[in-house]
Every structure is written in C-alpha cells, then in structure tokens.
Amino acid sequence: MMPSTLEHKLAKILTKRKKYKAIRYGLYIFIFLLVLGSIQTTIIKDTDWEKIGTFGTVVKALARFFPPDFSLFPHLVKPTIETFMIACLGTFLALVLAIPVSWFAAHNITPYKSITYPIGRAIMTLSRSVHEIVWGLIFVAAVGLGAFPGILAVAMRSIGFISKLTAEAIEDINPGQMEAIRATGANGFQVILYAVIPQILPVFVGNTIFQWDINIRRATIMGLVGAGGLGLTFHRQLVMYNYGGVTTVIIALLLLIAIGEVGSYYIRKAII
C-alpha cells in the first residue's frame, strides 16, 4: 500500500512539473512573439529608414561630433560650477523637505494617521513619478528662468526617494527605544528627537549622499528647459550645430560626474 501511494504522489508531482514546464515555455514563446511584434511596429515600421540612410551616413553623422572643440573649455568652467551648485542646493533642499514628509509617511510615528499619512504618501508618490524635466518645466513657468527653478526641480524629484527610504527605515526601528524615552515623560517631539532620529540617521545620510550623486546627473539636464548649468551650454552648442562643442560639453559632464562619484564614495566611507 505504502509504495503505491508514494509512486502515485511521485507521478502526480511529475505531471504537475510537466504542466508547469509547458506553461512556462508557452509564456516564453508568447513574450518572444510580443517583443517581435513590438519591434516590427515601433522600430521597423515607424522609423524613417530612408532618412537615416546607409550605415555610412550614420557614421558620417556620428563623425560630426569629432574632434571635440576644446576651445570651448574655458567657457565651461562657470556652467560646470553652476551645475554642481544646483545639485548641492537641490539635495540640501530635498533633505530639509524630506524630514517632515518622511515623518508624515511613516506609519508608526505619523501624528494624525487618517490625515497626515495619506498626505505624506501622496507627496512621496507625486515627487517620484514626475520626471525632473517635467518638474523643471513647471518651475520655470512659475519662477522664471535661471538656476532657481533647477534647484527646485532637482529637490522635488529627490524628496520622494529620500523620504520613501527614510519612512521605511522609521517603520523598521526598534520600538523599545521609543517606549523607553516615552516612559521618561518625554513628549512626541522629544521621542522623535531622541529615539527615532538616532536610529535612522545612518540610513538617512546614506540615501542623501546617494541622491546627491544622482542629482549631479539631473542637474546637467536642467538647462535643457531653461534652468541654467551645463545643460544650457549643451543646448546652445547643439542649436548652433557646433557638434564638436557638444562633445566637449559631454566630456566636462563626465568629468563632473566622475568627481561626484568618487566624492560620494569617500564621504560614504567616512560616515559609515
């Protein structure tokens, strides 16, 4: 009796496995066909192949970007510093604004659960879902051209990320410390100051540095919508058809980002 049930079970498992295998391969084939279909409709049919021409014309179009126009370099110093400062100020503003947002959006410490929690969550989602270009457009329309809308746009984009990870860290903290501080008669503010902040500080600082690194990247494109920095120079060189200058701007941008990456690595190492 015993072995027969075992065999029975084994056979059941094997048929199940076969079924799953069939489903899996069916799914693979389906996805493959879907991708092929999309390639057909979006890339092959939609592209104006005649305008792109042969491989040679593409190479020719690419060759316009070389050699880089190094005479532009002295003019790139100021926009590069500007870009760097937009990123720094944007990150700083995001950091300041992320504190109340993450306080509101952390389920365990939010002051009025039915009101502030959804507000915090909504700000977080909105901030993350709108691309920095769109934020740039909104702020340029509201406060005019210049570096200021760039700072605001960069800040708005990173609030969501910093506060999301911080709120998650707050939700994971050890409640014992909060209870201990509350037991001393501390009010809500003191509980946050002495029980919550020390526990989440490393996460918060780490995320902020990570965002700073990304924000340098974001700041480089703020100029495309009229908000100062290297993006503006890039745009100008492009509309003047000075492709060598475009390459120079990209080189400057890569240097700036490399500096940011190395800097953030060392700061993170020094803090953590």
Binding site: I52, R218, I221, L253
Partner: peptide
C-alpha cells in the same frame, strides 16, 4: 553618467525623429 535625456538628444540628432 550621461543622463537619458542627453542620450535622447544625441541619438535624435544622429538618427532623426522617431
């Protein structure tokens, strides 16, 4: 390092719209 929008602009200048 190069932002996706800069890639887009560069590729549009090389390959055209689409």
């Amino acid at each position: 390092a190069v932002h996706e929008m800069i890639w887009t602009i560069l590729l549009v200048t090389i390959l055209g719209f689409g």
